[in-house]
């Protein structure tokens, strides 16, 4: 039983080392990085910020992992966040009760995902093209809903999703954690994990094996849309307003990056939701570090690009058996010197 666990940990090594390294650099840039205190009954500190700010991308990455594992990609999640935020805000302003607002918003996210899924599974559009449609149109739809302005709301219930806390833990972190646990449980306790990997690796062979790959793809994209809506609610609640122009802008790329950093191949197949979440945390730790470092903002993107290159190179080094090579080299040398 301990065998597979050890290999999983070894596989996660490059990502874990990267995270440790980035956190250490953050500590160098800002010695108070690991300080955590309670502020108004809520945990407060840079480390909490990393998780709290990272929560929307973690949530997106959960859905995106399933999509990418099926050999697809969903470019529309950022736009779906904007749409769902816009719906949540306008419905709240119009006076609908909170449960209705949340259900309607998540429902719209689900519908957006279904739309993508239908295009991919039943019309055989390439995922990148199919989801590009909603990526472009979605933001327009969000702007129509908000009529071009930021729709501000003051409903404490909705705001709670963004800035509230439970037992000191900010809500976005709790929601992301809950989603992670549920998603991992569903994927590994049911056959979905195996079946998703199967259609991602070889869809034709999966069809021959009697798998309903169309329906499965539909569900995967719908779930991804659902995740995007959840993330959309959180970021709207966080700023108490729906900003159709900027909500979720470029976050689809962060989500894809998180999945890739987590080690799931863009060519589909083997995936790990937990590793994608780790990827999202790595990205956010880097962003927070850059903000804390005090570098002029002109360097933000260059720094980010550099770190990502290092991570991806380390990963390909590791998957190419680099660690084993190093271990063998150092191992024998070590023994010789003794």
């Amino acid at each position: 039983m301990s065998g597979p666990r050890v290999t999983a940990l070894t596989k996660a090594m490059p990502q874990l080392l990267t995270l440790v390294l980035i956190l250490f650099l953050n500590y160098l840039a800002f010695p108070g990085f690991f300080d955590i205190r309670l502020q108004d009954g809520r945990l407060f500190g840079s480390l909490i910020d990393v998780l709290n700010r990272g929560a929307p991308v973690i949530i997106l990455a959960v859905g995106m992992t399933a999509v990418i594992a099926s050999r697809g990609v969903d470019l529309s999640v950022g736009a779906v966040m904007a749409v769902s935020g816009a719906i949540a805000a306008t419905m709240t302003v119009a006076g609908y009760p909170l449960p209705i607002v949340i259900l309607a918003t998540l429902g719209v996210g689900l519908l957006c995902g279904l739309w993508n899924g239908i295009l991919v599974a039943y019309f055989d559009l390439q995922p990148i093209v199919a989801t590009l449609i909603l990526m472009v149109a979605g933001r327009g739809i969000a702007q129509l809903i908000t009529e071009g302005s930021i729709v501000t709301f003051n409903e404490p219930g909705l705001i709670f999703f963004g800035t509230g806390s439970f037992a000191g833990v900010p809500m976005p972190i709790l929601i992301a954690l809950l989603l992670l646990i549920v998603a991992i449980a569903v994927v590994r306790r049911t056959a979905l994990g195996l079946l998703i990997e199967s259609i991602g690796i070889n869809r034709s062979a999966s069809n021959y094996a009697g798998l309903n790959s169309k329906l499965l793809l539909l569900v995967i994209y719908a779930f991804c849309g659902f995740c995007a809506a959840l993330a959309g609610i959180i970021i709207a609640a966080d700023i108490r307003g729906a900003d159709a122009n900027n909500a979720g802008l470029w976050l689809e790329l962060d989500a894809i990056l998180a999945v890739v950093v987590g080690g799931t191949s863009l060519f589909g197949g083997r995936f790990s939701i937990l590793m994608s979440a780790l990827g999202a945390v790595i990205i956010q730790a880097m962003n927070t570090g850059i903000l804390l470092s005090g570098f002029p903002p002109e360097y933000n993107l260059i720094l980010k690009a550099l770190v990502i290159i290092v991570i991806l190179l380390a990963q390909s080094f590791s998957s190419a058996g680099g660690w084993a090579f190093v271990k063998a080299e150092f191992g024998t040398k070590g023994r010789k010197s003794q």
Partner: peptide
């Protein structure tokens, strides 16, 4: 003492300010 970009948006303004406050 500190200057960072918030991309003219509310959410980035909030995120960057959180960093400023810690730092």
């Amino acid at each position: 003492t500190r200057s960072q970009t918030g991309d003219f948006t509310r959410s980035k303004g909030k995120e960057v300010m959180e960093g400023f406050l810690k730092a």
